[in-house]
Amino acid sequence: MVEQLSPLAAVFRPGSHGNFVDGVGVTLSEMAPGSIVQLAAWPGEEKKLIAAITSLTGLKLADGAGAGAASERHTVFGFAPGKFLLTDTAEGLVSAAGVVTPAMGTITDLSHGRTAIRVAGPRSEWVLAKLFAVDFSLVAFPQGSGISTAHHDIFAQIQRSGPDRFDLYVFRSFARSFWKMLCHASDEVGYEVR
């Protein structure tokens, strides 16, 4: 299999940047999961789809808007009514997802179409609040859950994967531009790219 080329390659500069004299405020990295797929249930079939996700990944999802969960291998979260984003560190998830029957809903491969960027560290909420009009506090945005939002024209689906860690899925064509904005926004708090 041919390796996927990252859209960030030209602007990805590992190391510490910005004002990091008092420590690194955020760590930025590209997650590059093997697979990213969208699962979408027909109205009324949401519970069956959630059960299928559980059988596929072992992850249990609460029944509610934006519910999500993560394991070493998989992450999943709801981002729209009946719609979920599911990732796998391995490639080929779309073909393994036969558990989602046509009666239940659809499966769409986005492994190339979305770029996954992780923002972690004590100033994650501060940096992301510069870019999105969304409340990133733990109360409003609980761990594991996901949202859909946008920074100007750049759509983003975001999962909180830790108390101070967020995984952002953006359109691949915007990824380089978004990465530059993210670095710019992180300058002030000091950031490490790895």
Partner: peptide, 11 residues
């Protein structure tokens, strides 16, 4: 029963 997904960036 139709789902629409932007896959412009997938290809």
């Amino acid at each position: 029963k139709v789902h629409l997904t932007s896959v412009t960036d997938q290809w």
